[in-house]
Amino acid sequence: MSRPIYTIAVTGLNAIDSPGPGVAVIRGLREAASFDVRIIGLAYESLEPGIYMHDLVDITYLIPYPTAGADALLERLLYINSHEKLDIIIPNFDAELYSFMKLEAKLRDSGIHMFLPTFQQFEERHKVNLSTFGKKYGIDVPEGIAVSDSSEIHKHADKLDFPMMIKGKWYDAYVAYNIEQARTYFNKIAAKWGLPVILQKFVHGTEYNVTGLGDGEGNVIAAVPMRKQFITDKGKAWAGISIDDKKLLELTTRFVSATKWRGGFELEMMKSGDGKYFLMEINPRIPAWVYLAVGVGQNIPEALALLALGQKPEPYKTFDVGKLFIRYSWDMIVDRSEFENFSVKGEL
């Protein structure tokens, strides 16, 4: 029996040192058991490596940055759709999700499906609101305060103590060991990602992450916990191992059923010395290390695509424990004409 072929557009092709999830998502989609794919890359910059990975991406289009607004994005997506007849879009950046969520209904009218968190879910889990989120759902979260002025740091220093985490609302996090460092990081982050900046109590421990998928009705479709084995200076996992931690899986189930989470997610957890888990962040999208989940038996990108199309994939119940992912970098040799084509025409 021939399998259906879906045309799926994917963002996050920046497979760099702090990688976007796009390339890993595409690898999952290419290995899907239930369908074949035609992959349309959506890129913001002409040097995103995924654009030039022709064995993974069939054609890539340049799309406008989120700052250009949802209308500009819609116009471009409709243009791309007129050429490619998209079935699904999988956005993979936190910063672009809001625009895509706003466009979900309009894109559906054009036959393009997505499977994204709701506005409430997206806002509630935001770093700025994480403390309230933890209290509401009974999940331990390190105390955090959103501040808009560096003079406020002093006010909260006694309560949060040093070292203290200084986090941007979208990306970036630094450990500050004194008030001067805290102010420096505040200014650095505010200049790059805007206000507010989050001050968070530092938790000593080991980092664990879970990637998963919720069906929007409170059911966990997939969940794979991972321990970071090697962390880059940007705090990204460069190697990790799948683990069988019942506590982490229970926490994930609680998170999905309480919030009725819709879509892919990543829970960033810290396990303190006394074995207690603290939820550090919820990323409302598939993480860059998702190919580990695919490799251990849970093809999250495939299941997400099926959910987007209104199908009900069987929840994954098992996965291989003790499998590692080890990331590596790879130099591609690209002809200048390809770079030129994408830079000038916005298509390759």
Partner: peptide, 16 residues
């Protein structure tokens, strides 16, 4: 998980 070579893996924590 214990291998004959003396490699130990704790599947609950990921430590080896």
């Amino acid at each position: 998980a214990v291998s004959e070579s003396g490699f130990l893996f704790n599947p609950g924590t990921g430590e080896s």
